[in-house]
Design a binder for these strands. Structure first.
Lengths: 231, 231
DNA sequence: TTTTGAATTTCGGGT
DNA sequence: ACCCGAAGTTCAAAA
């Protein structure tokens, strides 16, 4: 990884055009060729970047750039698309290179897939006597997160979200419309389950006869006997 | 901006849990407090990060971390949420600080808004004799990108995308269903316009009687007399 | 301030 | 390889 802190201007041309006026920024060149240009604020997203595979050419500024005071120009071109990044350097404050090696990678825990696994294992959270039919029950319009059977034997479709929003209710509604056309499953009721359910979504769901279920991930994780195995 | 290259392990706990095993990485601390942890590959997205406002505490490792060889521990806590990042440093390879100043910011050109403006100005790209009714024509289910009238006086609804995908066709279909219920507008035909239209989207669109229009942004920009004013 | 939709989205899983 | 959907989405603009 090469780290360059320098006063520079940047132009990107590809899927869009973008221009960065002259200022001091960090230019990061990763081992795989990625180029990232960061300012000293904002978020984790760089101001500009290029993804590999690419070619990086360090050259002399063209006439216009030189007239404006550029002393070095990097031309970064994507090997696959016609994206191009041009960095005109005016002065360098820092330039260092480092060997980092490959990263073992991030281990995540607590995403929707985990919620789904936990809810399938603790299916009675839906209500006493509920039995799991299956996860990711395929339909023509996509997979229903969880299909279950309640104590009375009626089918229950569960839409699972980390954050329950209107579109999740719409999604479940479409599934319910479809599933209720199947005489073998009919009648199918719906449960909208999420860690957090927005008031609007709750109102819409209940208006459509869909039950809402707020999930406590930490509690569910506590019940799960495999909890903590990652750390 | 502070740049630290060090062998470290990282734990994040917040909206999810995540763990990074011991490896050499770049830890970037921006002037606004943001902390970014980058590996030497991947994309522009850091492995872990924390957004401001936050507090950064440099302390000594706890017993467990020290036993594993940690010599310094950073605790980064969000001031607003309960997100927390813990970095256990085992050895430092580089540590430098730099004054960058505020960034003048990025100037973009060529996003969907530009496309829409250009297409509205060059409405005859839809076909000879087309007239603009209005941009962002509001309906109960959202704004239609462009509403126009063709040479015969029939209404035309345009859905505009940078990259034309199935969901864009679905969106336009919903608009057309709605607009065709309005006796004042009926009959309304649809045009799906995008810089790139995926084959599946094109097939679906044409199957529904929606015309597809591929837009050449550079050509449209060339026609626009305000082109190039940004640079 | 909340909400809505785009993004040079990225990223991962499945087919 | 493409397709689909989640994301600690982030981000900006509009309501």
């Amino acid at each position: 990884m090469r780290l360059v802190v320098a006063k520079c201007s940047v132009d990107y041309e590809g899927r869009l055009r973008a221009h960065l006026p002259l200022a001091t920024r960090l230019v990061m060149v990763k081992a795989d060729g990625s180029v990232l240009i960061h300012s000293d604020g904002g978020s984790y997203k760089p101001l500009n970047w290029m993804n590999p595979p690419l070619t990086l050419h360090e050259g002399t500024p063209d006439e216009d750039a030189a007239a404006l005071g550029a002393v070095s120009t990097w031309t970064v071109a994507s090997a696959k698309t016609d994206d191009k990044l041009t960095i005109n350097f005016h002065s360098f404050e820092h330039d260092s290179a480092h060997i980092l090696g490959t990263d073992p990678g991030l281990i995540k825990d607590g995403v929707e897939a985990d919620l789904q696994r936990l809810l399938a294992e603790q299916i009675e959270l839906l209500g006493d006597g509920h039995k799991l039919i299956r996860r990711e029950y395929m339909t023509a319009i996509g997979p229903v997160d969880i299909l279950a059977r309640d104590a009375k034997g009626a089918t229950v479709a569960v839409e699972l979200k980390r954050r329950g929003d209107i579109d999740g209710v719409e999604q479940l509604t479409r599934y319910l419309d479809l599933l209720n056309r199947d005489p073998l499953l009919k009648p199918v009721t719906g449960i909208f389950a999420a860690q957090q359910i927005k008031p609007q979504a709750r109102t819409l769901a209940e208006d459509r006869g869909i039950r809402c279920l707020t999930l406590d991930y930490d509690a569910m994780r506590g019940v799960d006997d495999s909890a903590g195995r990652l750390f």
